[in-house]
Design a protein around this nucleic acid. Sequence first.
DNA 1: CGCCGAGTTGAACTGAATCAAGAAACGTGG
DNA 2: CCACGTTTCTTGATTCAGTTCAACTCGGCG
Lengths: 187, 187
Amino acid sequence: MKKFLETISGLVGLPPQCEAELLSIAKFREVAKGEIILKVNSVSSSAYYIEQGLTRTFYYKDGKDVTDWISTEGEFAISIISFLSNLPDRRGIEALEAGVLYELQRTDLELLYHKYHEIERLGRLLVSQGIIQLQQRFDELHFSTARERYQELMAEKPAFIQRVPLGILASFLGMSQETLSRIRAQI
Amino acid sequence: MKKFLETISGLVGLPPQCEAELLSIAKFREVAKGEIILKVNSVSSSAYYIEQGLTRTFYYKDGKDVTDWISTEGEFAISIISFLSNLPDRRGIEALEAGVLYELQRTDLELLYHKYHEIERLGRLLVSQGIIQLQQRFDELHFSTARERYQELMAEKPAFIQRVPLGILASFLGMSQETLSRIRAQI
DNA sequence: CGCCGAGTTGAACTGAATCAAGAAACGTGG
DNA sequence: CCACGTTTCTTGATTCAGTTCAACTCGGCG
């Protein structure tokens, strides 16, 4: 729970009662390597804060497994569209490593949004942070070559290169596994 | 101001006093075709609601003009990263048609976020809506062919095809102008 | 009338995907 | 702790979608 508190208090200072209520809705959850945290094509009713571990958001496009996002300690694993719109989405979430999560259910969170202005603000700031990250990833994927994308990742998230299997990393970077293998060989 | 009110009240009901204050910070602004609303590489201190008209967010990548986003009536024109983080960004905003905007300054908005819980909620919901749209655009650009992307646009935003110059549309769709011209010829 | 920006068309080129085989690493049970 | 099968990664050959470069057409408009 340590990291979770740090992440929150980095964004907004919460009065003790309010913080306590927020913590009380965060459900501790341990996951095994390979465990499916959210099933593909379902409605996601929770966001998952990663205290320890590594997850990927993925879906199937024409039968092929596509990795959409990778999250690690201090970040959220979330199926954005489904969680925010309460509709099913093709994205699922899988644990790439054994780990520890805190699950925040949308319904619980929404009660707190209404009850506490500060939590509403926290929500706004978290989504704002999310949109900035997504915009940055969008920029990279859109207008860089395969090699540039890999080098960018090396600079920004070197841990991923060690911890994420090649095929998944390649899909996350928007290239085939073979291409990533060749790029890696040249560097 | 009609559309602006509709957009807001579609997301959250505001008490009269609160709504009045929000409207009071929205600055009316007319723009000419080709007018630069936000300069490239500057800090964006405002979001622009488009009451009437068409805008693009763009930047220069290796000397080439890249169109990042296109917004029209009922939507916001915004340099997301700069507006939310208060830092300079390469993105600028240009009016593609003469139009009418409402400018919302970050500083004004932040005062209202603090003063009214409802406006904080409105902010959260607007960013949530934005992140969903960005995620959807991301999906399309990432894992579809050039033709699929064009067809998707025809289905989602047919007006763009009429109103946006070919070169800008091509860049928005992540392809060269020549490719878009050829795709268009085949359909 | 002739220039200029916007769009089209053609031909050559290229980055990356796909298809196909192996090599290495991994873990599970004997 | 080794052997075997499975998954992960590498390497090579071929193909293809889309880019680039270049020339040409079309429709205003000063």
